[in-house]
Amino acid sequence: MRATLAPLAAQADHVSLTAQTRIIAAALAILFMVWILDLIRRDRLQERYSVVWFVAGLAMLAGAAFPGLLKFVADLMGVRDTNVALFSIVLLLLLGLALNFSVIMSRQAAQITRLAQERAIERAREQAAREALEKQLDGNAE
């Protein structure tokens, strides 16, 4: 394990990340994940929606710890500048997340509509039943 990771870490020089940025990025990634855990703990974020954020936090941490990874991905993409690779990956990720939210939102909008309709129908039923009862009572009174 150590043997495979060492060269990746050693490649830090080839990537334009200084030790300082790497430490800041790693700290931010850890803070970010702690924040997510706290949100789950306080019931502000449901587990099923937290996974994607947690993965993003881990990826950030991995990028900070092993800058070679970034270089590796940049090479895969055929991008010479790792910064460009980093930005495009992050942008694509955010785009995907935003779309994911739109999908979730659409589903929930449909659910809310159906809920509203069911409630409206229940109220109409209630009104019909009440009026039928009143009619019956009026009929008995005569």
Binding site: T113, A116, Q117, R119, A120, I121, R123, A124, Q127
Partner: peptide, 14 residues
């Protein structure tokens, strides 16, 4: 007449 009241505006389709 019987009225089905939606709790909030949902648009004509709904």
């Amino acid at each position: 007449v019987i009225v089905a009241t939606l709790p909030f505006n949902q648009g004509l389709g709904a």
